[in-house]
Nucleic acid binder design. Structure first.
Lengths: 353, 353
DNA sequence: TTGAAAGCGCTACCAT
DNA sequence: ATGGTAGCGCTTTCAA
């Protein structure tokens, strides 16, 4: 498909070889002109570059070069799920914004890859990028394995892998502060609206990698913090007061919030694992005629821009999404100069709680 | 860099050739097992696929395959400018969301490419994708030329190119309705906050392509509509009442709005070429103690989500950004079944005007 | 139904 | 300083 139709006459495909012939120099010199300036005289190089530009040769074909050297200048961002989700979720979008700022400066390009094996119909696309940012545990662990086999620099974000650079935020600490804030006001009737508490599809699990399991997922850490806080304040968080959602979306949030607010006794506070979920809950509460925060307090997580734009403004845990993206990109471009790290989070107390 | 370190013993790179040797079949059979099921017996194919999976061979190396066939399953989205801008602009993000929804379904991948020549240090990255969506006129026309030379399916969005599929929205119509709404209420003191009215960098302009010029840019069409509307209502839009911005960002919007509101006579209405600019203007007006819409009416363009979330809600022209993305992707995946088209826009009258 | 072999465009080694 | 050339991993004719 789209096989370059050998077009009429002159307009043949212009390759390194064809310009070499045209200029009567060796292919090696053309290659060197682009890649190793020190290997030829300034004058020859100048002439080659000028002529190439005139002939419409803008540098070595990326696929061929990649085949030979393994380098393309492309950074792959492996996403946890499908592509489209990441353009709907503010947190992901901010992360990608941070990544792309740094890639822009580095003149690198960005290949977005879904984290699901069945999205690659028998193609080893993973060979294209030079380096990888893995944003959240891929829903399909097979693709992670394929990726690791490439022996290319990898930075994992929001989860960790043995022997790999990782970048996390302080999920436990942030969630703890949020829960302390709620429980500390003598409020024990709390329901948690959790996110992907089931963990990922474990079908293709990483052998020998105990680090990669639900117990270390960001949601699990947040839940642990909620639980610890409850205990510390003399409450308990019963299992039936912890709701789960599959995705941080409006629809999932609405469903969970309805369920939560139909419970009896009706909770007087909602600890939500994302702002998106909290925003949906806020809307449900409003529909139910509940006064927030008087009747119901709502606390989110992430601090997406909407959190401070909505009324009442959302109390939430701030995490530095853009900075996380920037740092992930810097780390993967320069692995030797970085170490795994955990970024701080903090509580933003606003109107909903 | 990151040259696969020949690792200790067993864990050699697994290629088509190596599995062929391992299974004692020809490389052709392996290739056929993945690409042309009809070329071998079901039993052999099954065995090959099973063994490949066991050996960790997940399909042909994308770079090598691309070199041979020209196909990678990657769709390139060439952006007007750098990458990061597109994660900051709601309009762009929604567009990309639409694109990625369709690419997800088609199991295609997404390579994001900046529209600036100097972002490709001598690399012909354009050879990687199979097809292209060009989102807005690239700020560097050289990259467009390189792209066209690939002879691959191309869909241009928000601008047109001779002999190419294009997708536009009705900029003139939408802007006309917005201006009619403003001028129709007897309001002649209007200032326009324009966007990239200078057109793109014309340094590497497309020869013989009169279509590609500022006169057909979306901003120009909107401005024409504003002007025509003014005239139709017995007003004129003087040149000094048309301000320009380089980017649709908060900062640019603030700068322009300050300038606009410092004019005398102070305008009583602002026609903004994007919601982002309008939102910034709204903020400036508020800082100046102006009552919107009593003292100053503000009308935007795009209808991004924030337009209806802010207070007062923003009167603006709706354009179907997500749908535009979806359609662009469908068009490029299936060029024969589509024709260039123009999507409708309409005025959303809200509180600011 | 299967296999042998040419060559996609390029780089890097080795000669000169 | 420049050129010749093998081979990266794969697909695809052609022959068996």
């Amino acid at each position: 498909m789209s096989k370059p139709v050998p077009s009429k006459g002159s307009s043949q495909r212009v390759t390194l070889k064809s310009v070499a012939r045209e200029l009567s120099v060796s292919t090696a010199s053309i290659s060197n002109a682009f890649n190793r300036p020190d290997q030829l005289s300034v004058s020859l190089r100048d002439r080659i570059l000028r002529e190439c530009s005139r002939l419409g040769y803008h540098g070595p074909n990326a696929a061929a070069r990649s085949l030979r050297t393994g380098a393309t200048g492309i950074v792959g961002v492996m996403l946890a799920e499908r592509l489209s989700y990441n353009f709907r979720d503010s947190c992901a979008t901010e992360f990608l914004q941070g990544v792309s700022e740094v890639l822009d400066d580095a003149r690198a390009n960005l290949l977005l890859m879904p984290g699901r094996d069945d999205f690659y119909n028998h193609q080893s696309l993973e060979s294209i990028p030079d380096r990888y940012i893995v944003y959240g545990p891929p829903s399909d662990l097979t693709v992670l394995k394929r990726l690791m086999r490439q022996q290319k620099p990898v930075v994992t974000v929001d989860f960790s892998l043995e022997n790999n650079l990782s970048l996390n935020v302080d999920n436990y600490g942030g969630a703890k502060k949020a829960a302390d804030h709620v429980f500390g006001q003598g409020d024990g009737d709390v329901v948690v609206i959790g996110l992907r508490l089931n963990g990922t599809d474990q079908s293709g699990h990483m052998e020998n990698n105990s680090l990669f399991n639900p117990a270390t997922s960001i949601s699990r850490k947040r839940l642990d913090a909620y639980r610890d806080s409850a205990l510390a304040h003399g409450y308990t968080l019963a299992d039936d007061r912890v709701l789960n959602t599959r995705e941080s979306t409006w629809a999932e949030g609405v469903k969970a919030a309805r369920k939560a607010l139909a419970m009896s006794p009706r909770p007087t506070a909602l600890l939500c694992m994302s702002d998106q979920l909290a925003l949906a809950a806020l809307s449900v509460a409003r529909d139910l005629g509940l006064n927030v925060p008087a009747d119901l307090r709502i606390v989110g997580f992430d601090d997406i821009p909407e959190a401070r734009q909505i009324h009442p403004t959302l109390t939430t845990v701030y995490q530095p999404s853009i900075e996380k993206g920037r740092l992930a990109a810097k780390m993967v471009l320069n692995p030797e100069q970085h170490e795994s790290c955990v970024l701080p989070t903090h509580l933003e107390i606003r109107e909903t709680g």
